[in-house]
Amino acid sequence: MIKEMKILKQHGIQFVPDLKEAVLTPLFRGRPVIKEDISKSEAEHIKKICPSDAIVTEGGFGIDLGKCVFCKECQFACPDKIKFTNDYKLSSNKRENLVVRKGYKEIKFDEQSIRPEIRKLFKNSLKLRQISAGGDNSCEFELNAAGNVNFDMGRYGIEFVASPRHADGIVITGPITENMAEALQICYDATPSPKIIVLVGTDAISGGMFKDSPALNRDFFNNHAVDLYIPGNPAHPLTFINAILALIGR
């Protein structure tokens, strides 16, 4: 007992008191900022080095966070114009809002298109079933961490559950392999309606580094609308929690 008390005392308080205002280390690779106009030749150069085709040139230069793997090489190539900030609020309920362009100061949520039942039913209690479909395990680790003593998303009634029958929605990580496609569909079908679909990590949103692999099967998205896109490689627990809070209106 005395030993346990000693451990508890050593342990102190790890808890992050405010999950919306917590500040991450300056080097954390979060929301990029494009400070100045990128010239055509610079854009071509960056487009060439980007490992995951995340650079958009139509309608002006932009970085698509749904494809970005946060390697920061575009900043190293253009340090005066592109900067990855430590802002971890990266998510949106609209896929096209993930494209960052010059002067953008935040990633916007489209409040209008959030289904009304989501906020009505899930605001105070949201149970989620996680499905890893080719995820590399880092996103899965971060989702586990979102519920741990540091981040404790349970304080908002958000929890991962063991069965789809108990869940209000599914959280998908990984690019969706051909070998997992059927299991994903079965799990989704087993979740009672109304239900939400959340994609976590760049792999899930666009296939990421695997988008050209023939071993994937992303047909699931032909038939189902996604409610929330959470970019990252992997998505930080704070990114995940803030995204869910924004969706349920907390």
Binding site: P51, A133, G134, D136, G174, N179, M209, S213, L216
Partner: peptide, 25 residues
């Protein structure tokens, strides 16, 4: 279930950075 065909991507992607990011995945 997790098979993503990653070995072949190392061959198809002849760009050093892509391979490196792939190896981290």
């Amino acid at each position: 279930y997790q098979h993503r065909g990653i070995e072949n991507l190392f061959v198809n992607e002849n760009e050093g950075l892509k391979r490196c990011v792939l190896s981290e995945s």
